[in-house]
Write a protein that binds this DNA or RNA. Structure first.
Length: 158
DNA sequence: CAAATGATAGGC
DNA sequence: CCTATCATTTGT
């Protein structure tokens, strides 16, 4: 869960069509383990979420509500399902999981299962320190006991 | 507040 | 195979 907080203030960098898109991450949310009913992986490995069971440092992109993509970064070790959803960037029209994927042209066809080693998509530490606040997660009321976990983090002034 | 919109998972 | 559901956004 430390990783979730650490991502705030770091930069998401995406290389596409010879151009570089980069923006500071302002909001993240964690999904992990089998107890977390809000996580795609809580009911076991499936074709869609198998990346969450793989090695950390990979991207997990999926289509939600038939119209928007969401970008996640896999954390924890192999065979333990965990990922951090990038919920917001400091970039025009990128203040939401679906919106930032639209702005950064992230699609599941291209970006699902990428190794974040710096080729196409990666996270960069530019040494920015931010004051971070913890919040309840959103859109997960169906998740039962895990719905009130403070697994959402964001930059204080946003 | 409700619609848009399609992949997915779980049930049959 | 069938269908309820969904880690959202946008417009009324």
């Amino acid at each position: 869960m430390e990783v979730t907080k650490d991502l705030i203030g770091k930069f998401l960098v995406h290389k596409i069509d010879g151009k570089i898109l980069a923006a500071e991450i302002t909001e993240t949310e964690a999904y992990a383990g089998f107890e977390d009913r809000a996580s795609h992986a809580s009911r076991g490995k499936t074709q869609r979420n198998e990346i969450m069971f793989g090695l950390p440092g990979f991207s997990y992109v999926y289509l939600i509500y038939g119209m928007y993509y969401c970008l996640n970064i896999v954390t924890e070790k192999k065979d333990y399902p965990a990922a951090v959803l990038i919920r917001g960037l400091d970039y025009p029209n990128a203040d939401g999981p679906g919106k930032l994927c639209r702005e950064f042209k992230i699609t599941k066809e291209i970006h699902n299962g990428l190794d974040l080693i710096g080729n196409i998509l990666w996270v960069e530490d530019r040494g920015i320190k931010r004051e971070i606040i913890a919040l309840k997660r959103v859109g997960v009321d169906y998740a039962g006991s895990s719905k009130d976990w403070l697994w959402r983090f964001k930059r204080k002034d946003h």
